[in-house]
Simulated assay, not measured.
Amino acid sequence: MITNEQQERIAGWFSGRVPAQWQPVDVTVDKEEITIVLTTPDVELADDATDAVRAEARAGRASAFREETREQRMEIAREAQHRYERKVSWGLAIGDQRVLWTHVSAPVMTRLRQPERRVLDTLVDAGVARSRSDALAWCVRLVGQHEGDWITRLREAMDSVAQVRSEGPAA
């Protein structure tokens, strides 16, 4: 489990390391990966621009930003990967859009009984997911969306337990 203190330390390092014009940075950390979402100003379009035009303009800005910053982002990622022993993934926030360019897709082994497998197979057969793996990821995202507050409270409780443990006697 990643503690709030670890998350804050890593976020602090990136806030200091990433150029000011890419700020603020949104840093998310787990056991395998650090995901950095940079920020760039939104595109300036006429007020009557359609949502489709706005989305395409943002996609173009994100693509250009990705290419223009590639070398510097790779250098920062190398430093961070050495320092924190995790892969670094990048994304960009532009307006109300978030684009992730790279990310780790970590395999997770699980044992499911027939009723759970049937749920996954139904999602695959209905075309909601391409595979059982995609179906399981879809289910996890759905739980995260609908139980987000509960998950947040659970993480906060685990952070409190980690804090209390760290204050206890050394083993």
Rank of each mutant, 00 (worst) to 15 (best):
R165P: 01
T152A: 10
Q114D: 09
L45S: 06
T3W: 02
R61M: 05
L154F: 14
A80Y: 06
Q7W: 05
V124I: 08
L120E: 12
I76D: 09
Q7K: 10
E56V: 03
T122D: 12
V124M: 05
G148D: 01
L100R: 15
S63W: 11
R70P: 00
G60W: 09
G127E: 04
G168N: 12
E8C: 07
A55R: 15
D159F: 13
V99P: 03
D121V: 03
D149L: 05
L92N: 02
Q72D: 08
T3G: 01
W138H: 04
S63K: 15
A106C: 09
I76G: 07
V25K: 03
M109D: 10
R66C: 02
T3L: 00
R83G: 01
L38K: 03
A59T: 12
V43F: 04
A59K: 15
W101C: 03
D149C: 01
P115V: 00
D51L: 06
A55H: 12
Q81M: 10
Y84F: 15
L100P: 04
V104Y: 04
V143S: 03
Q23C: 03
T102K: 05
L45N: 09
H82L: 10
I94L: 05
V164M: 13
V99Q: 12
R54H: 06
T40L: 08
I76L: 15
I36S: 05
K87I: 06
K31A: 15
G12T: 10
M1S: 12
R54S: 01
P169E: 15
Q6R: 10
V99H: 09
V124F: 05
V88A: 09
A106H: 14
T40W: 01
A106Y: 12
R86T: 01
S15N: 15
Q97N: 11
R58Q: 07
R117D: 06
S15L: 11
L136H: 06
V164W: 13
V128W: 08
G91V: 06
T102S: 15
A59D: 14
L136Y: 08
R98L: 02
D125I: 01
K87Q: 15
A55N: 14
V140W: 07
Q114E: 10
A170D: 09
Y84T: 02
V43E: 02
R141P: 00
R118C: 04
R141A: 07
F65P: 01
A64N: 11
Y84V: 02
E79K: 07
E67V: 11
R61N: 03
R66G: 00
R98F: 01
T152W: 03
T102N: 14
V108A: 12
I94P: 00
E79L: 04
W101S: 07
P19E: 11
A126Q: 13
V128I: 14
R83H: 10
L100A: 11
I94M: 03
W90D: 07
W150T: 12
A126D: 14
E116W: 05
